[in-house]
């Protein structure tokens, strides 16, 4: 009985690549598919949107200030008459760029430290103590301190926008790699005992080739899942910093900054906080759903069912 089942299964289904299987499982998670759709929509909107909605986000039309939704300004205007839709689109560009770059930085750092700590026994102790140290740091206060203190130096060195962008990406990346490093290290430790790794070591594969060919492709799935969580985390952190007034300057819109600026007019124009807030929340929600779906899809124990 038991030895018939795999054969009949194999006969029923033509052989598929692994990523095809993952995609099939991913498609069954309704929230993840919606999240994926929405995320692609947001990315397209913030990259292509400014070409379609051509009003300049910085253009001040003082006669049209504080207007509600009209045909000329579908989401209304702010206290200087700048178009809210254009500002949300442009702010989205910055927020998404910060989110994705900071995630990549954290991912590279985390994966590198995780792989090295798991693979080289001698470096395991020091690197993991370093990870524990970073996990024990109070992150949000520290982020605030770093940004407050180094903002002016970097602004002078690289100009207001690039300087702040680099600073924020750097501090978010440097403070969010620890979870990835821990997960990757655990997986590498388990992989090291597997037969194929021992076999390739026995034929004298050098460490570099071993890591690139055999270890990294096998830890790709936890890295992918933490990538999605990393984007969500980075977007929220950037908006939180901007919201506390310590992020980008006010003439440089990001979603958090727009939300922060509109809270000053909360009594008169409460609807104005809605658009940037919704943009942040829905983007993060969609990314989290993608992460949920990916985790199920990449888990071989669930995928077979």
């Amino acid at each position: 009985m038991t030895d018939v089942t795999p054969d009949s299964l194999a006969a029923a289904r033509p052989p598929q690549s692994q990523w095809r299987n993952v995609w099939d499982q991913f498609k069954t998670h309704r929230g993840a598919v919606w999240g994926m759709g929405f995320f692609i929509f947001v990315v397209l909107a913030v990259t292509l949107g400014p070409y379609i909605w051509t009003i300049d986000a910085q253009y001040i039309d003082i006669r049209a200030r504080n207007s509600g939704p009209t045909l000329a300004h579908p989401l209304g205007t702010d206290q200087l008459g700048r178009d809210t839709l254009a500002r949300v689109l442009e702010g989205g560009q910055v927020s998404m760029a910060v989110g994705i770059t900071a995630m990549l930085l954290a991912l590279v750092l985390g994966a590198a430290i995780g792989v090295v700590a798991g693979y080289f026994k001698r470096l395991d102790g020091p690197l993991m103590r370093l990870t524990d140290l970073f996990l024990a740091l109070p992150l949000l206060p520290l982020l605030l301190v770093i940004i407050m203190l180094f903002r002016d130096t970097l602004r002078a060195a690289f100009g207001p926008e690039t300087g702040i962008f680099m600073l924020i990406v750097f501090v978010i990346g440097i403070t969010s790699w620890m979870q990835t490093a821990r997960i990757v290290r655990g997986d590498v430790l388990a992989l090291k005992e597997r037969e194929f790794v021992i076999a390739s070591r026995s034929i004298g594969t050098p460490s570099r080739r071993m890591i690139l060919r055999h270890i990294l492709p096998n830890v790709l799935s936890p890295i992918t899942v933490s990538a999605t969580l990393g984007i969500a985390n980075a977007i929220i952190t950037e908006s939180a910093l901007s919201f506390l007034g310590l992020g980008f300057p006010s003439d440089f819109p990001t979603w958090g900054r727009l939300l922060f600026d509109s809270t000053d007019y909360l009594q008169q124009y409460p609807e104005r906080v809605l658009w940037p807030g919704l943009a942040i929340s829905l983007t993060v929600l969609s990314v989290n759903y993608i992460g949920d779906g990916l985790r199920d899809a990449l888990d071989p124990r669930i995928r077979g069912r």
């Binding site: 969500a232 929220i236 908006s239 939180a240 919201f243 958090g256 939300l259 906080v273 807030g277 942040i280 929340s281 993060v284 929600l285 989290n288």
Partner: peptide, 8 residues
């Protein structure tokens, strides 16, 4: 609740 930031 997990995705929507508290400042919103």
């Amino acid at each position: 609740g997990f995705s929507v930031p508290t400042f919103f």
